[in-house]
Design a protein around this nucleic acid. Structure first.
Lengths: 166, 166
DNA sequence: ATAAACTTTCAATTTTATTTGAAAGTTCGA
DNA sequence: TCGAACTTTCAAATAAAATTGAAAGTTTAT
């Protein structure tokens, strides 16, 4: 019945959800914690709040920085590093899309390009033709998806949703 | 330099890619194999081709059927079940989007709805206001994403890409 | 009703991913 | 240059996920 409880519930469940879709629980929870925290937190504070080891906290904080989902913040007269989340949801979304593109889409496109270039032959039997068709179709589709993500990354949030969602 | 080699390379690498983005290797490989195979295959044939145990093959075949990415096919005068992949790339894409929506988006929307309804209080301090704002903004955004996936699922392929990709 | 042909289940095992925490590394002020 | 304050690394431990294969279950033809 108060916002502190809401925050705890959010962090807990976001961790479970994250782990269901392939993001490790610690990373999802650190992100959830920083999302719901207005000000920057130190590694110590994060470790304490989520009961994580130093190594685990450090490694997942670095991962989140690689995703550009959190930033380092320096406080004057303090040697500790503090971390603060990107709080703008549309910015978060574009960062996630851009990272998924880099990890999921690009390697698949590269695979299909390589196969097309190096391996596809001109055999005319039905199975061979099918393979060639599938490689081509899948390659074309993935390139369109790539364009689609580019569009989204360049578009303004309001434009995208006006266009699509009325 | 021939299509059979292309098929083998595709299956192998698709399995690795799949496992990098949270789909288990067996499932990704079975899907790749059936994608690249024109005709339906039996469990035995799949096991043989990919060197999987019966249990593993059976379980991942069932998963792929739950994703609606492969279908059971019965051959007259044969008791074995055969499996064939959905070969149309746009149809595959809509099935994947629809499954990811069900698994990734809906649970997150439900979490935020629940928090909004049951837990958010009216505290006025900066941290509490921040939590409330984030829950609301994230909830709104996820609902828009839900609309976006609905749009994609209803749209024709050509419409979507004409609209977005010129 | 039986048995052969086939599919599904699941406890045990193996593999992979995550987490820990102490040690090594770095930075900075005095 | 030293050492305190802090961050990073990484081998070992733990936890989670995938895989195996034999046993149990199901279906069908006779």
């Amino acid at each position: 019945m108060n916002n502190q409880e809401a925050k705890i519930e959010f962090i807990h469940t976001w961790g479970i959800l994250g782990s269901q879709w392939g993001i490790n629980r610690s990373m999802a929870q650190i992100h959830a914690l920083l999302l719901m925290t207005k000000n920057a937190m130190s590694t110590e504070e994060i470790m304490g709040e989520l009961q994580l080891s130093r190594g685990n906290a450090n490694m997942n904080i670095r991962d989140l920085m690689n995703w550009n989902l959190i930033y380092k913040q320096i406080k004057a007269g303090d040697r500790k590093e503090y971390f603060i989340a990107e709080h703008d949801i549309w910015t978060i979304a574009t960062r996630v899309v851009s990272e998924r593109k880099r990890r999921e889409l690009i390697p698949a496109i590269e695979l299909l390009d390589r196969i097309k270039k190096d391996e596809l032959g001109g055999e005319k039997d039905a199975e061979s033709v099918h393979i060639k068709d599938m490689v081509n179709n899948l390659g074309d589709f993935l390139n369109k998806m790539d364009k689609l993500t580019e569009f989204m990354l360049k578009a303004e949030q309001s434009l995208l949703f006006k266009l699509i969602v009325k």
